[in-house]
Simulated scan of single mutants.
Amino acid sequence: MHAADAIHGDLGMIQRDDVVICISKSGSTPEIKVLVPLLKRTGAKLIALVGNLNSWLADQADCILDATVAQEACPHDLAPTTSTTAALALGDALAICLLEARSFGREDFARLHPGGTLGKRLYLTVDDLSRLNELPQVSLQADLHTVILEMTSKRLGATAVVDDDGALAGIITDGDLRRMLRAGRDLAQVRATDIMTPRPKTIETGTYAVTALEMMQLHQITQLIVLEGTRPVGFVHMHDLLREGLV
Rank of each mutant, 00 (worst) to 15 (best):
S24Y: 09
C74S: 10
T82E: 01
S83I: 07
I96P: 01
W56E: 13
A48Q: 04
L53C: 02
C22P: 01
I64T: 13
A61V: 12
A95S: 08
T82Y: 02
L94D: 00
P30K: 10
A86N: 05
L94G: 00
C22T: 11
A61T: 11
G12F: 10
V19T: 15
K33W: 00
K45C: 01
P75C: 13
D17G: 13
A70D: 15
S55F: 08
A44E: 02
L49P: 02
I14C: 10
I21F: 15
H76W: 08
P30W: 06
A79G: 07
D17M: 12
E72R: 13
P75I: 12
K33R: 14
L39D: 07
V50S: 14
L78G: 09
A93K: 05
G91E: 00
C63T: 14
K45D: 00
S83D: 04
T85M: 13
A95L: 06
P30G: 03
Q60F: 09
G12V: 08
D59F: 10
C74K: 12
T85Q: 05
S55C: 07
D18I: 13
G51V: 07
L46D: 04
I32A: 09
V50K: 02
N52R: 11
H76C: 06
Q60A: 14
D59G: 15
R16E: 15
V50L: 03
P80A: 09
S55A: 10
A86E: 03
N54E: 15
V20T: 05
P75G: 13
T42L: 05
A79V: 14
S55I: 09
C74E: 09
A61H: 10
S24I: 06
V50R: 02
C63H: 14
K25T: 11
T81A: 14
V50N: 01
C74L: 11
